[in-house]
């Protein structure tokens, strides 16, 4: 899952709330407008009630949108949601860069 990766000490980094939002958005994005809550739950590795809460917040923030398909809600990412993901991953890249090996830190000091 997103965020379950090596932290600076080499251990597994605990997912923070921004990681959870990004996880849900990435999973929803894979379904191209037809993401059902159970699929998002399985993809994100979170219980349905937790995912439902996160999706509600993401919809309120304009990062996701919902519509009915065959009487059941399906979700899709918005342009603003994609913007969130772009920013999130860029920031994660910078954090990775700051946690790099000593030789890379030498480079950064130059």
């Amino acid at each position: 899952m997103l965020g379950d990766r090596e932290g600076r000490s080499g251990g597994v980094r605990r997912r923070e709330v921004t990681d959870l939002y990004a996880t849900v958005l990435e999973v929803v994005k894979r379904y191209h407008g037809a993401a059902r809550i159970t699929r998002v739950s399985y993809g994100a590795g979170m219980p349905v009630d937790r995912v439902r809460l996160l999706i509600r917040r993401l919809i309120d923030a304009g990062l996701l949108r919902s519509e009915d398909l065959d009487g059941r809600p399906v979700y899709d990412i918005t342009a603003r949601g994609q913007e969130f993901l772009d920013t999130y991953w860029k920031m994660r890249g910078y954090v990775e860069a700051l946690d790099r090996s000593p030789e890379d830190r030498t480079f950064r000091r130059r």
Partner: peptide, 19 residues
């Protein structure tokens, strides 16, 4: 939606994963 783990070769046109 989540994880893909494959010990051998994957031959495909399009592959995508949320995780």
């Amino acid at each position: 939606g989540g994880l893909v783990r494959l010990s051998g070769k994957m031959i495909a046109q399009d592959v995508e994963a949320g995780g």
